[in-house]
Amino acid sequence: MTVASQVKQTLASLKGARGTLRVYSTQTREEEARSMYTDAIVVTSSIIADLENRLQTLEFEEPQYKGN
């Protein structure tokens, strides 16, 4: 497995986690817990953005593995 596809995998699981967080941030009844989940979404999103940037660089560096 190339680095790019590993990063892609992590990216996918982080995106899934962000989705779950989003569900909890809407269905939780406690205000404090809800803002906690919302904060977590922000943090996760910034990590996702960073990884996406990195992925672009990686795919540029090893174009033969693009799409894997």
Binding site: Q9, S13, A17, T20, I47
Partner: peptide, 19 residues
């Protein structure tokens, strides 16, 4: 679901360290 979510984050953290 929550335990899974926590595990996902832990795994992602470990991945970041590997990268």
């Amino acid at each position: 679901v929550k335990e899974m979510l926590y595990a996902t984050f832990e795994k992602a953290q470990a991945d970041l360290l590997t990268f």
